[in-house]
């Protein structure tokens, strides 16, 4: 119960932060990526602001080893920079620039993004399903 309450609170705060920061406005995100046009630095402030509390949280987490509900702090991923990381990030970035949406803001703005917001999420979910065989094929080819 506490686990779900904390998760809902974290999700809610995340959504509120995305909304307040202006990151559900696709022109603001695309403006940040638009270095050849009218560049908008807002996203850098958002990233900087978000990283600050997380820097402290990681310090605390690695000292305490366990979360409030007793689960272990996730281990550091292997530092391997694989092909999937690069290919995936490039594909993701292309879609991010094209629409101005990434997964968090797409969900935070679901209630006020109109039909287009649902279309994006449905396509994103389909893409997530497609990623499963793509990943398997890339692994087989490696």
């Amino acid at each position: 119960m506490l686990r779900n309450l904390l998760a809902a609170a974290a999700g809610g705060l995340f959504g509120l932060g995305l909304m307040v920061s202006g990151m559900t406005d696709t022109t603001r995100v695309q403006g940040w990526l638009d270095v050849f046009g009218d560049w908008d630095p807002t996203l850098a402030f958002v990233m900087g602001g978000a990283i600050l509390p997380m820097l402290i949280a990681w310090q605390v987490a690695e000292r305490r080893q366990r979360s409030l509900i007793g689960t272990p702090i996730p281990a550091r991923a292997e530092p391997r920079i694989g092909r999937n990381l690069v290919i995936g990030s490039v594909l993701f970035g292309a879609g991010w620039g094209l629409s101005g949406l990434c997964p968090g803001p797409a969900m935070a703005a679901l209630s006020y993004n109109g039909a287009g917001g649902f279309v994006f999420i449905a396509a994103m979910a389909a893409g997530m399903l497609v990623a499963v065989p793509v990943k398997a094929r890339l692994a087989a080819a490696a």
Binding site: L91, F92, G95, L101, A123, A125
Partner: peptide
């Protein structure tokens, strides 16, 4: 864009 974001992030 949704397809790219879905495949790419996963």
């Amino acid at each position: 864009a949704g397809l790219l974001v879905g495949i790419g992030t996963r």
